[in-house]
Design a protein around this nucleic acid. Structure first.
Length: 262
DNA sequence: TGTGCCCTGGTA
DNA sequence: TACCAGGGCACA
């Protein structure tokens, strides 16, 4: 799934492809997108130059010349595809932007969960999310204070974007494994030392995430990337115990019952 | 704090 | 052909 490293990479690809370009057409190709990006918004971006592209949490922010901001969230399966206008459109294209410079920017999104939203000039509200995990804002002290208020199991708690930005289901399992913390441990029962370990683990798994697109990444066997995610029944790399799967808050969690203790 | 919903391609 | 995957949101 596109989590922080993948979204960062997608934003970089988008910058490389169309920063400074002028949008000449925006088209919605899937009904689910019409709710968020209606025809009036599609018209409103025409003629606008792409001035800046930022990322905050898992959201890409495309700043247009008139001060409007296009907010793009890939959710589960979203990704960018860039093609010359003369080429056939990609499969599973949900939203299309065409630039005066001849580039077709397609939001491809199999499950159509992705969201494109336009904030009119002066109406952009900053994304509500916790500290960026790979910056100095993600402090041990702040993390300890946040977790002290949370009594739920630690792994689903890590998915709360207000706690720390950009961690998704895969890296939450991976971080708990790195920190040797059982995913069901109540967040507010973790010692300061273990919170510090977890904070370091979150940073480690995000920093060492494979670069490149998660989607259509065909040069690597995805299952080989992760330590525990998707590895139910496989041997733990540390202790050889079989990896266990459980469901927390409707999401799969993978962990080693031997080296991840409560 | 937990559950169900939105969605549909891929897989068993 | 049925089921699974899950980010974020609304709701209980």
């Amino acid at each position: 799934m596109p989590e922080l490293p993948e979204v960062e990479h997608a934003a970089a690809r988008l910058r490389e492809a169309v920063l400074g370009h002028t949008i000449v057409r925006a088209t919605v190709l899937h009904p689910s997108q019409r709710r968020h990006f209606p025809p009036a918004a599609q018209k409103a971006v025409v003629g606008q130059r792409i001035e800046r592209i930022d990322r905050r949490a898992k959201v890409q922010l495309i700043h247009l010349a008139n001060g409007a901001v296009l907010e793009v969230h890939f959710r589960m399966t979203g990704d960018w595809e860039f093609t010359p206008l003369a080429d056939p459109a990609p499969r599973l294209e949900r939203v299309r932007f065409e630039t005066a410079e001849g580039v077709r920017v397609s939001l491809v999104d199999g499950r159509a969960f992705g969201v494109v939203r336009l904030h009119k000039p002066g109406q952009f509200v900053p994304i509500v999310a916790g500290p960026e995990p790979l910056t100095d804002d993600f402090t041990v002290e702040g993390f300890i204070a946040s977790l002290a208020k949370r009594s739920g199991p630690i792994k689903p708690t890590l998915l709360d974007q207000k706690l720390v930005a950009g961690v998704g289901n895969i890296y939450a399992s991976e971080a708990c494994w790195e920190a040797r913390i059982h995913p069901a441990t109540p967040a507010n029962t973790l010692s300061k030392a273990r919170v510090q370990k977890l904070r370091d683990a979150v940073r480690l798994v995000l920093e060492t995430a494979p670069s490149g697109r998660y989607y259509a990444r065909d040069d690597v066997n995805e299952r080989d990337i992760w330590r525990v995610y998707g590895k139910e029944g496989d041997a733990c790399r540390r202790c050889n115990t079989r990896i266990t799967k459980l469901v927390q808050a409707g999401r799969s969690t993978f962990y080693c019952a031997r080296c991840q203790r409560r």
